Computed example of a mutant assay.
Amino acid sequence: PEYARSPRRRAPRPGDKWHLDEVFVNIGGVRKYLWRAVDQHGKVLDILIQGKRDGKAATRFFRTLLKKQGCRPRVLITDKLASYQVAHRQTMSATEHRHNKYLNNRCENSHQPTRQREHAMKGFRTVGSAQRFLSSFSRISPHFRPPRHRMTATAHRTELTTRFRVWDQVTEQTLAA
């Protein structure tokens, strides 16, 4: 968590277009729902694990998201889950809401690193540990995944070297304190 807070402080403000999605995860053999919000640049805004996928759970996620971000989006993009419409009416009725099966691919793709990590860890044991880990992991993971398709191999190596240097500085400062 300490390492995850450092990149968050330096990060620019989130974009004005938010993509929201939920996916199920098995935690200790019980199905839970992982709610995730991503802006149009692919930056993870918030993650919340809950036991249900109803309107009350969606409203809780919207409220925690708004509280952490401190601003409202211009556009909210979700899939066709009816719970999002309930939460949208109660918390962000002035925001434009687009719900379409295909507009939400940015958020669907942001679940992939979580699934890979979940598989490597052989699942999560408790909701609390999963919430703590995924909140930190979603902040740290993109630091080591630059947009490879947009740069040459030399630029990619240079970028990774720079990012690892920054990571070493952040971790050394935390260990020294």
Rank of each mutant, 00 (worst) to 15 (best):
P1R: 05
P1F: 02
P1G: 01
A4W: 03
R8S: 08
R9L: 06
R9N: 00
R9M: 02
R9T: 05
R10F: 03
A11W: 00
A11P: 00
A11S: 05
P12Q: 02
P12A: 04
R13W: 00
D16Y: 00
W18T: 06
W18E: 04
W18Y: 04
W18D: 03
H19S: 08
L20T: 03
D21P: 07
E22D: 05
V23S: 08
F24G: 00
V25Y: 08
V25M: 12
I27C: 05
G28T: 07
V30P: 03
Y33C: 02
Y33K: 03
L34I: 10
L34F: 12
R36L: 05
V38M: 07
Q40G: 14
K43R: 15
K43S: 14
L45K: 04
L45T: 10
D46V: 13
I47L: 15
L48I: 12
I49N: 11
K52M: 09
A58N: 06
A58R: 04
T59M: 01
F61H: 07
F61M: 02
F62S: 00
F62L: 01
R63F: 00
R63D: 04
T64S: 11
Q69G: 03
G70I: 05
C71Q: 11
R72I: 13
P73L: 11
V75G: 04
T78S: 14
D79C: 09
K80P: 05
S83M: 10
S83Y: 12
Y84W: 14
Y84P: 02
Y84M: 06
Q85H: 13
V86Q: 10
H88K: 12
H88C: 09
T91W: 01
T91V: 15
M92H: 04
A94I: 02
A94L: 07
E96D: 06
E96N: 07
H97R: 01
H99A: 12
Y102S: 00
Y102N: 01
R106E: 09
E108A: 00
N109G: 04
H111F: 15
H111L: 09
Q112D: 06
P113G: 02
R115A: 13
R117V: 14
E118R: 15
E118L: 13
H119R: 15
K122E: 14
F124C: 13
T126H: 09
V127K: 14
S129M: 13
A130L: 07
A130Q: 04
F133G: 04
F133V: 09
F133H: 14
F133N: 02
S136L: 09
S136H: 08
R139C: 13
S141F: 13
S141H: 14
H143A: 09
P146G: 05
R148G: 06
R148F: 13
H149A: 06
M151H: 12
T152K: 06
T152L: 03
A153C: 09
T154Q: 12
A155Q: 15
R157H: 12
T158F: 00
E159R: 11
E159K: 12
E159M: 13
T161I: 08
R163E: 03
R163Y: 01
R165K: 06
D168S: 10
Q169L: 07
Q169N: 05
E172F: 02
A177I: 03
